[in-house]
Design a protein around this nucleic acid. Structure first.
Length: 566
RNA sequence: GCGCCUGUAGCUCAGUUGGAUAGAGCACUUGCCUCCGGAGCAAGGGGCCGUGGGUUCAAAUCCCGCCGGGCGCGCCA
């Protein structure tokens, strides 16, 4: 399909003087009945100074490219091309079969490196679905970059220090056997106490200062608490299939020679000063910052201890040195101004700041999630109830499977439900999360996608043998549904490129939904195993196989697995 | 108040980067399991694409104003 579009552009640019590839737009007609590829001529007609009708007449024989294009019609200001379904369809299937697990990848990242940092949840509680949006987007992007051939490394920035962690460490001394389940309560308690008890708050700062100065005993205490919490959080995230290559401790960036060099540069620009309260501060105005809000960026407190910004700048520089062609960080929209600030600092010292992927918050139907008011949805709670619900259905429908296998499938269904519900929405938009519909597994959901795959697998299982992968030279296509399915499959590589370019996994999610809808429609109107003759039966089996392959590749990028049955 | 994001069917979301009659799911109405899995399919009702202007052959899409929602403006991270 892609090469046909390329051919059309070649033919037209060669024939008409003074137009380039980008002048030729390609879209598709609103209905298959009107053709497969549409070329709007309005802009071309203007550019070439040729009347529309005239241009259409001249264009028709040009774009009727043998043997791929059967027919060209002019309709309004468009040229509509009808493809030869047999030839093009056969080629699409051939391509899926030959590329297999890599179908969809253009390997645009071959020889390049990608670094993605995501998640970085404060070690103070079990993650809720809002926090997990970061992890799901980040993980999906990581999968996309790997798929496109990038040498990809995934980083998790461990927030193992700071004032609030100091308070948590302080209070953990008073609680016996503090574990992951009790940590949120301890954290909330510690912060409340710091608000009402200045002495306690001061002790927190002191502890933090000791930690920074390298007091081994204090350091160990920090590590003990944060490690315990991180371990708990990672356990929940791993249920989602989210994994990391590197864990970078914030506490190893409290002093950085490299950053101090950057600060020297800032000094020469008149952007670094010690304020009236003895804090080391950057004035962003000399660097080109135009607003008053957020103009000052504090690096160190009066007692010399580092602020988050200092450590993060050092960390960002460290990541930059790893030589990635794509340096990406996934952040909540609340970090926008903050990232703007550190980006300005870095770029004015000659560094390239990372490209941010911002996402908006997940809201509940009732409003914002609030830990205090108790209306948060914990990721583990959601997975537990989704898994339990799914298990009931699996027990009904897959009686012959062992209990172990049934549980495994139920868990896969639960994961797909949450991942799809979150990933299908464009990151910049709020997700309104409705637990009830997320647990229903009906309609446009992850389980629906898995279900359509399970149906294909069921057909292939019943067929019993391996479906041959050699394609008939005149591949038989009788029904619109067959053709629509193949056309959709052929869009997959372009969809991936779009998705990676825009750093937006929801584009893949939309594609997977379209594909599943078209498949189920095909499934209901085109009998496969009972097809009218052997040739068509084989062709439909091959269409099923190609659809499954494409769907599996797409779902893999979303972190959704495809069970054999469900 | 200032800055960034956002507004599409009753609800939750798409909309191929400016193209033809704006599409899905949920909910509602109707039909479909003797037939490859009903977590499904087919059909129907439901839309001043927040609002007012502008740009042009063409605007849900681009520009400006207004209105509603989200986020930010820390000795937090």
């Amino acid at each position: 399909m892609l090469d046909i579009i390329k051919k059309i552009k070649d033919v037209l640019t060669n024939h008409f003087e003074g137009i380039q590839e980008k002048d030729i737009l390609i879209s598709s007609p609103p209905d298959v009945k009107m053709g497969d590829i549409a070329i709007p001529l309005f802009a071309l007609s203007k550019k070439l100074n040729v009347p529309l009708q005239n241009l259409a007449e001249r264009g028709i024989p040009l774009v009727k490219i043998e043997p791929y294009v059967d027919k060209v019609e002019k309709a309004g200001g468009y040229l509509n091309l009808f493809l030869n379904r047999s030839i093009v369809g056969g080629q699409i299937i051939q391509q899926v079969f030959s590329k297999g697990r890599l179908f969809g990848s253009s390997m645009s990242g071959k020889g390049k490196k990608a670094l993605i940092e995501h998640t970085s949840i404060n070690p103070n509680a079990s993650p809720h679905v809002g926090r997990a949006r970061n992890a799901m987007i980040g993980d999906s992007l990581s999968r996309l970059f790997r798929f496109e051939g990038y040498d990809t490394e995934v980083h998790y920035y461990v927030n193992d220090m700071g004032r609030q962690i100091g308070l948590l460490v302080l209070i953990s001394d008073e609680i016996e056997n503090l574990d992951f389940n009790g940590i949120l309560q301890a954290y909330v308690h510690a912060n409340q106490r710091a608000e009402n008890d200045p002495e306690f708050a001061q002790k927190g700062y002191d502890l933090l200062a000791q930690m920074e100065q390298g007091n081994e005993e204090v350091r160990k205490k920090f590590f003990k608490v944060t490690d315990m919490c991180l371990k708990g959080q990672l356990g929940v995230l791993r249920r989602l299939g989210v994994d990391y290559d590197y864990f970078d401790r914030e506490s190893s960036f409290i002093e950085s020679e490299e950053l101090n060099k950057v600060l020297d540069i800032l000094k020469t620009k008149g952007a670094l000063f010690v304020d009236e309260e003895q804090r080391l501060t950057v004035d962003l105005a000399p660097l080109g910052y135009t607003q008053e809000e957020g103009r000052y960026f504090v690096l160190r407190r009066a007692n010399g201890s580092s602020m988050y910004g200092y450590r993060d700048l050092a960390y960002t520089i460290y990541k930059g040195h790893r030589g990635a062609d794509e340096d990406i960080i996934v952040l909540g929209e609340d970090h926008k101004l903050y990232l703007q600030q550190i980006s300005l600092i870095l770029s004015s010292a000659g560094y390239t700041p990372p490209s941010p992927v911002f996402y908006s918050y997940i809201l509940l139907k009732e409003g914002k999630m609030s830990t205090r008011q108790g209306n948060v949805v914990l990721l583990s709670d959601f997975l537990d109830s989704a898994s339990a619900l799914a298990l009931e259905r699996v027990q009904e429908q897959c009686k012959e499977l062992s209990e172990e296998e049934q549980k495994l499938i139920a868990e896969q269904v639960a994961v797909s439900a949450i991942r799809f519900a979150v990933l299908r929405v464009t990151p910049t938009k709020n997700v309104i999360f409705d637990i009830e519909s997320a647990l229903s597994f009906e309609g446009d959901t992850g389980p629906y996608l898995q279900y359509s795959c399970a149906r294909i697998k069921s057909i292939l299982r019943k067929y019993g043998e391996k479906v041959p992968t050699n394609i008939l030279t005149s591949f038989p296509i009788r029904q619109n549904e067959e053709w629509l399915l193949l056309r959709k499959i052929s869009e997959f590589p372009l969809t991936i490129l779009n998705s990676i370019e825009q750093h937006n996994p929801s584009i893949i999610a939309g594609f997977a939904l379209d594909l599943a809808h078209i498949f189920t429609s095909f499934y209901h109107s085109c009998p496969v195993l009972q097809a009218e003759n052997e040739e068509i039966r084989m062709a439909r089996l091959q269409i099923c196989l190609a659809t499954l392959r494409t769907m599996q590749n797409a779902l893999h990028l979303l972190g959704i697995s495809v069970p054999e049955r469900m």
